[in-house]
Design a protein around this nucleic acid. Structure first.
Lengths: 220, 220
DNA sequence: GCATACATTGACCCATGGGTCAGTTTATAA
DNA sequence: TTATAAACTGACCCATGGGTCAATGTATGC
């Protein structure tokens, strides 16, 4: 069997535990012992699946990202026109599953580690490129290319901004507040057309429906 | 003499060294030994001025912030109308002195530490409140209160967003690119009036002039 | 039953790094 | 010149935490 990838499921469990740990205790507080405890297993066992802590954190980074990616994919599958695709990205980034202080804190901790680790950099670059193309595509069919690029970059900045503030728990950042900021930004180049309005409602609803289907609390 | 505050100048030097270290090596790479080396002094000497590493990092956080605050103050002193005050905040945050990957990386590292330290939280809250009031004031006299609040929050998000991306060195974030995003956002509620146009040019020029006066390279 | 391969673990190793301390140098003031 | 306080240091201590290893389960295929 070539190289049994050491029980993929088990590896995923540990990546998840590491991600959880990161969210709760930050980078400094994420020790192998703590991750092991979180997973209900011994420290040595974790090292059996990940040769080094660096590897484990890399997996945690991938895991956190894949959660968000799944969210985007699910909404993208529902989206039927450009505006719906734009709002799919926005709503996915505000989904109650991900847009929470602990998760944002984990994201912040990993982001801080990125500049000092080549591998993390590569992953981050991929994440960035994907989000970018998810936005620039639909926006191109709603405006000229230059506007699409600029709006995409600005949307990404706002995403990073609201996530940062969510992580810092500053000014009580909520999804509703974030949504208002995205609307404001989009207003800069786009009128509130019926299509846009409908897309906003549809995607917001789709995201909510998915949460309910998975039994995740959703207060907005 | 009551309690000589242990040579304020010396303390500041060490805070600066710590901040530099943080920018270059991240939180994990910032050890007392490294900070001491940076300052050309022994590890024990650093501990003589700061009782604990936590204290030192707190000072580094304050230091990094005070640099930015000075930038804002200097431009604010020049500003004569609301638009000029708005652009004073924006330009200060994009000043070539501060808006550089290493500095942004340091900011990122400290931000990641914030959720796990009360004292850092307090400082961060103060910084946030000040930036907020610096923006909401002038914007209130340019629009209704609600718009001013929303625009302020969105501007802050973009600031955090572009800083994050600057720290991650993603998509080659430059001050010029950031400026375009701020313009886009402001377009959402404000026409490009002559006052706004003039203010933008004036503050950009004022910032540049200050850099030149201090001999800091300024490529845009 | 037995052999093999993988899972899991406790015990251990050791480098790192924060923090202490006792002592030396240096500056200042009487 | 000398007393005093502050600046500064090398040497040391020790807790933490990443990583290794040999040993012990435990399942699977023959």
């Amino acid at each position: 069997m070539g190289r049994r990838p050491l029980s993929k499921i088990r590896r995923k469990e540990f990546a998840r535990a590491a991600h959880l740990c990161l969210a709760q205790h930050g980078l400094a507080g994420t020790t192998l012992a703590r991750v092991a405890e979180q997973a209900g297993v011994s420290k040595a066992s974790v090292l059996h699946y990940y040769r080094t802590k660096e590897d484990l954190l890399e997996a945690a980074l991938r895991h956190g990202n894949s959660t968000l990616r799944d969210e985007v994919s699910a909404l993208m599958r529902v989206a039927r026109d450009p505006w719906q695709r734009v709002y799919a990205v926005i709503e996915a980034n505000l989904s109650p599953r991900a847009f929470r202080p602990p998760i944002a804190q984990g994201w912040l901790a990993l982001s801080a580690a990125v500049p000092h680790n080549r591998q993390y950099q590569r992953i981050q670059t991929v994440i960035y490129a994907r989000t970018r193309s998810n936005l620039v595509g639909p926006l191109r069919s709603l405006s000229d290319a230059e506007t699409a690029e600029l709006m995409t970059d600005a949307l990404i900045s706002v995403i990073d901004g609201v996530w940062t503030r969510c992580g810092l728990s500053l000014g009580g950042m909520t999804a509703a507040e974030a949504r208002r900021q995205f609307e404001l930004l989009l207003d800069a180049r786009f009128a509130d057309s019926p299509e846009r309005h409908a897309a906003r409602r549809l995607m917001s609803e789709a995201c909510r429906a998915q949460m309910l289907a998975r039994g995740i609390p959703c207060e907005d």
